[in-house]
Design a protein around this nucleic acid. Structure first.
Lengths: 337, 337
DNA sequence: CTGAAAGCGCTAACAA
DNA sequence: TTGTTAGCGCTTTCAG
């Protein structure tokens, strides 16, 4: 592959001139410019981002850590991050953390190795203290959907607890009192917060949570199916169900369809969603919307501002939004209550 | 960030020694090795992949072009590509082609710019002749799910026509004769091939395709919904429907549910699928499986073999597989036929 | 087993 | 407006 020197030789100029013309720095004689451009075209010259990085001590790359690439959710994140990075002409390096701290560590190692100018972490497993250590290093990073005390200026957050509480309170406002919950893994902070929101909404309404109402899944369809099964078999008298992710909702819905539980006639359903799946299900499922797209975009904007060292005014805390559809039935008021 | 020179100085050795130790080349006095390792630890030294790339003239990166990151399908591809690349310790650079030849060109430019050692192209818009031109250049690439005459050794392919034909022939074998089709955009080669398979199956069975049986979508849920609507309003007498993608199937299913068209009692349904969505719908939808995961894995293996210049024996042509579930009802034989 | 020196492709003062 | 020079951080002969 042709180098800048090859172009310079062919054009009969010095390589620094070629460099300037490529980067549009300064003025050149029209003739020189033409010669250089012809030479570049003739040699099919493409500047080496690598050499440029080394010379300028800036890689022009940014990293993004996600758990997995599959499943839609992370695709939304990547899409926004790439789009925002394109605006700044930066390359995106992605890495998967799989489901372990070591996986996440390895991803970050990779970012450092490539001298990424900064990176966005959708980290679920790295402990807070390691994050604090990382924050001592010069490479900026921002945490997407994670709250770490002392690192507030790097956090893009969402109030999972409040979101869940709003969803469940809505069910309660519709007259429901026997409300089950399919949660994500309770060992994950955001999943646990969603579960807490559920509990809190019940408490505030003076409802005592019965055994068997809450079942723990892992955000997969299969776990949603199984959880729905456990719940329904243990507590066939529930009138409403709150599902903590769209994928689990899909699984749960399959179970209910298969067992002729009509939604919303026999059972009302409300779900977390961030990729817009709920709207396409039957019946269209009411959701609390988790705005991962907006958050991902904000994360990159924050990151870029940190890279440039220019603090910027921006929203870092995002709010839930209820999107009501056909899966919740108001319960007729019961006499004597 | 500490450089190799910093480490060398601190350890009191020459930087080339440090380099050798890092790369495990040759033998060293235990003492030297220890000193160097301590220095690296103390300085929290991380070798620069960029400098290394420049010095070795190999970037250790591979590119992957997809249309979009969202929607699940491309996530499956990326997942496999990343996993396979991890085996070879290569970095993955992803880029989106959006929906244009120019977008794809830009992505490839980016790969060259970063001096990727090779790249996998899930290209839908770059014309064949441009691909031939690209093939003249030294950087290897492989085409994932695309057949280009003259570039066979770089193609990982799938027989879309046959897959569609198998699906539709299955419907016919179950007694169906009035069979509609929701196709993808007919201007896309693979979508067109699927449509052709549908047509061919009908023809072989001596069935004349009626007006309104075929509707063109664009692989989105919404287009599936609209297509189902058009088809069903124009031809309420169809007994079966073949949908060319899982997302369109989701949309179509919503339409049928909303309009009380029972699947499979009133209408049988079979769909293309590659991400396993059909199994989670209600009713579970029978599918022709498009093995994008296996194909993506094969693509990287082929690419790596081309990068190393060691041709390898491998399967480059993949076959469809019918996965039968509950969405197709055998039609009772009609007397006198 | 280790050091010296050259160079990968490019940029960035500094001169001219 | 253009050329000269000195690196960026690392690898890789070639000596010793």
């Amino acid at each position: 592959m042709a180098s800048i020197q090859d172009v310079a030789s062919l054009a009969g100029v010095h390589r620094s001139t070629v460099s300037r013309i490529i980067n549009g720095e300064g003025k050149f004689r029209a003739d020189t410019k033409r010669k250089v451009e012809m030479a570049m075209a003739e040699l099919n010259y493409r500047p080496s981002a690598i050499a440029r990085s080394l010379a300028t001590a800036s890689s022009n790359m940014a990293g993004l850590l996600v758990t997995y690439y599959t499943g839609g959710f992370f695709g939304e994140m990547m899409e926004q991050v790439q789009a925002e990075l394109d605006n700044h002409n930066k390359f995106l390096i992605t890495a998967q953390g799989h489901l372990s701290a070591e996986g996440e560590r390895e991803a970050i190692r990779r970012f450092h190795h490539l001298r990424c100018e900064g990176y966005v972490l959708n980290s679920r497993y790295l402990p807070d203290d390691e994050l604090h250590l990382l924050a001592q290093e010069p490479t900026p990073f921002v945490l997407l959907d994670r709250q770490v005390a002392g690192l507030e200026s790097r956090c893009i957050t969402f109030n999972h607890r409040l979101a869940a509480k709003q969803a469940v309170s809505y069910l309660i406002a519709q007259g429901h009192r026997k409300i089950a919950c399919i949660s994500g893994s309770l060992s994950r902070a955001s999943s646990f917060q969603r579960y807490q929101g559920y509990v809190e909404a019940l408490q505030e309404a003076g409802i005592t949570q019965a055994d068997g109402w809450a079942e723990e899944g892992n955000y997969s369809r299969e776990s949603g199916y199984r959880a729905a099964q456990s719940i329904y078999q243990a507590c066939p008298d529930i009138t409403a169900l709150f599902s903590c992710s769209e994928e689990m909702t899909l699984g749960a819905l399959l179970f209910f369809h298969q067992h002729n539980v009509a939604i919303p006639q026999q059972l009302s359903l409300i779900s977390f969603d961030s990729v817009g799946l709920c709207a396409s299900l039957y019946p269209p499922v009411s959701e609390v919307h988790f705005p991962i797209r907006d958050m991902a975009q904000a994360a990159v904007q924050l990151l870029v501002s940190q890279i440039h060292g220019q603090p910027v005014e921006m929203r870092c805390h995002f709010q839930p939004e209820l999107r009501l559809r056909d899966s919740v039935r108001p319960l007729p008021a019961v006499d004597g209550l």
